[in-house]
Lab assay of single mutants.
Amino acid sequence: SDLEELEKFAKTFKQRRIKLGFTQGDVGLAMGKLYGNDFSQTTISRFEALNLSFKNMCKLKPLLEKWLNDAESSP
């Protein structure tokens, strides 16, 4: 289901973010620079904790996926 997908992604996202050495705040700032939407550390934290509305989670997921792919592919 969509919800299970989101839960899986949130977990994976957190693990990969930590492995890359980024804080939640770093992610929020980087996404602001890249996509012009500033995200607070709290928002990233709540995403990882599945603590946002389903609609908000769905809106954030593609942006976070893109950020993660970019972060992992940059030298």
Rank of each mutant, 00 (worst) to 15 (best):
residue 75 P to H: 09
residue 65 E to K: 14
residue 44 I to V: 09
residue 23 T to A: 05
residue 47 F to K: 00
residue 41 Q to T: 09
residue 72 E to Y: 05
residue 62 P to R: 06
residue 52 L to F: 04
residue 56 N to V: 07
residue 74 S to V: 14
residue 66 K to A: 09
residue 41 Q to V: 07
residue 58 C to D: 10
residue 55 K to Q: 15
residue 51 N to L: 10
residue 59 K to A: 11
residue 61 K to P: 01
residue 63 L to D: 04
residue 75 P to A: 14
residue 68 L to W: 02
residue 37 N to W: 08
residue 27 V to D: 01
residue 55 K to P: 05
residue 37 N to S: 12
residue 26 D to G: 06
residue 55 K to I: 06
residue 64 L to A: 04
residue 70 D to E: 14
residue 49 A to P: 03
residue 14 K to A: 03
residue 70 D to M: 07
residue 59 K to W: 06
residue 41 Q to K: 15
residue 57 M to F: 04
residue 73 S to N: 12
residue 70 D to P: 02
residue 54 F to W: 11
residue 71 A to S: 09
residue 18 I to Y: 05
residue 53 S to R: 07
residue 58 C to Q: 15
residue 47 F to S: 00
residue 60 L to T: 10
residue 53 S to G: 13
residue 60 L to H: 03
residue 61 K to Y: 07
residue 60 L to S: 03
residue 41 Q to W: 07
residue 5 E to I: 11
residue 36 G to C: 05
residue 28 G to C: 03
residue 17 R to V: 00
residue 50 L to G: 14
residue 37 N to C: 10
residue 75 P to W: 05
residue 65 E to P: 02
residue 75 P to G: 13
residue 53 S to D: 10
residue 27 V to I: 03
residue 68 L to E: 02
residue 72 E to L: 05
residue 22 F to M: 02
residue 18 I to L: 11
residue 58 C to S: 14
residue 5 E to N: 10
residue 48 E to K: 01
residue 49 A to T: 04
residue 41 Q to M: 09
residue 29 L to E: 13
residue 63 L to W: 08
residue 69 N to P: 03
residue 48 E to T: 00
residue 37 N to M: 11
residue 5 E to C: 12
residue 52 L to H: 05
residue 18 I to R: 09
residue 44 I to A: 01
residue 54 F to A: 13
residue 50 L to C: 08
residue 68 L to S: 03
residue 71 A to N: 15
residue 57 M to E: 01
residue 71 A to V: 13
residue 28 G to S: 04
residue 58 C to H: 09
residue 66 K to S: 06
residue 41 Q to R: 12
residue 67 W to H: 02
residue 63 L to I: 15
residue 63 L to E: 06
residue 53 S to E: 08
residue 28 G to A: 09
residue 51 N to A: 11
residue 69 N to L: 08
residue 59 K to I: 10
residue 10 A to G: 08
residue 42 T to I: 15
residue 62 P to C: 04
residue 74 S to A: 14
residue 29 L to D: 09
residue 67 W to C: 03
residue 50 L to Q: 09
residue 59 K to V: 07
residue 73 S to G: 11
residue 63 L to C: 10
residue 50 L to I: 05
residue 75 P to C: 08
residue 47 F to Y: 04
residue 56 N to Q: 15
residue 75 P to L: 14
residue 2 D to G: 12
residue 66 K to R: 11
residue 62 P to K: 10
residue 18 I to C: 06
residue 52 L to G: 05
residue 59 K to G: 07
residue 31 M to R: 01
residue 62 P to G: 07
residue 68 L to H: 03
residue 54 F to Q: 11
residue 68 L to N: 01
residue 29 L to F: 07
residue 45 S to M: 10
residue 72 E to T: 08
residue 72 E to P: 03
residue 64 L to T: 02
residue 50 L to R: 13
residue 60 L to Y: 06
residue 38 D to N: 14
residue 65 E to A: 08
residue 53 S to Q: 08
residue 54 F to S: 09
residue 5 E to D: 14
residue 49 A to S: 15
residue 64 L to P: 01
residue 75 P to V: 15
residue 37 N to A: 13
residue 41 Q to N: 14
residue 68 L to T: 03
residue 55 K to S: 13
residue 45 S to I: 06
residue 30 A to G: 03
residue 52 L to E: 06
residue 74 S to W: 09
residue 50 L to N: 15
residue 53 S to C: 06
residue 65 E to F: 06
residue 75 P to Q: 07
residue 56 N to K: 11
residue 67 W to K: 02
residue 68 L to K: 01
residue 49 A to V: 13
residue 24 Q to A: 02
residue 46 R to A: 13
residue 33 K to G: 15
residue 48 E to M: 01
residue 54 F to P: 09
residue 55 K to V: 12
residue 68 L to C: 05
residue 53 S to T: 12
residue 51 N to Q: 12
residue 70 D to R: 09
residue 71 A to E: 12
residue 75 P to Y: 01
residue 29 L to V: 12
residue 46 R to D: 13
residue 71 A to R: 11
residue 10 A to L: 00
residue 75 P to K: 06
residue 71 A to C: 05
residue 67 W to Y: 13
residue 73 S to V: 10
residue 41 Q to I: 08
residue 41 Q to Y: 08
residue 54 F to M: 15
residue 67 W to D: 01
residue 64 L to C: 06
residue 56 N to Y: 11
residue 55 K to M: 09
residue 69 N to D: 14
residue 29 L to S: 12
residue 75 P to R: 09
residue 69 N to V: 10
residue 69 N to A: 10
residue 66 K to M: 05
residue 57 M to N: 05
residue 29 L to Q: 13
residue 28 G to Q: 02
residue 69 N to Q: 14
residue 33 K to R: 15
residue 44 I to C: 02
residue 54 F to N: 10
residue 69 N to W: 13
residue 53 S to I: 02
residue 61 K to H: 05
residue 56 N to I: 10
residue 45 S to E: 14
residue 64 L to D: 02
residue 74 S to E: 05
residue 51 N to K: 15
residue 70 D to L: 07
residue 48 E to F: 01
residue 56 N to L: 12
residue 53 S to P: 10
residue 72 E to R: 06
residue 29 L to R: 13
residue 73 S to W: 05
residue 25 G to E: 05
residue 70 D to W: 06
residue 52 L to T: 07
residue 59 K to D: 10
residue 54 F to L: 09
residue 37 N to T: 11
residue 63 L to K: 10
residue 62 P to I: 07
residue 70 D to Y: 11
residue 58 C to W: 14
residue 41 Q to D: 08
residue 67 W to N: 00
residue 65 E to G: 05
residue 55 K to R: 11
residue 57 M to R: 01
residue 53 S to A: 06
residue 47 F to Q: 00
residue 50 L to F: 14
residue 22 F to N: 10
residue 71 A to T: 12
residue 37 N to R: 14
residue 64 L to Q: 01
residue 52 L to K: 01
residue 22 F to L: 15
residue 71 A to P: 08
residue 62 P to T: 05
residue 5 E to A: 14
residue 63 L to S: 09
residue 72 E to A: 10
residue 54 F to D: 08
residue 45 S to D: 09
residue 66 K to Q: 10
residue 49 A to M: 04
residue 51 N to Y: 05
residue 44 I to L: 06
residue 69 N to K: 06
residue 45 S to V: 08
residue 44 I to D: 00
residue 48 E to P: 00
residue 70 D to F: 09
residue 67 W to R: 01
residue 29 L to P: 02
residue 74 S to K: 14
residue 65 E to S: 07
residue 12 T to R: 11
residue 55 K to W: 07
residue 29 L to Y: 08
residue 21 G to D: 03
residue 47 F to V: 03
residue 51 N to R: 12
residue 72 E to H: 03
residue 61 K to M: 06
residue 65 E to Q: 07
residue 70 D to I: 11
residue 70 D to T: 15
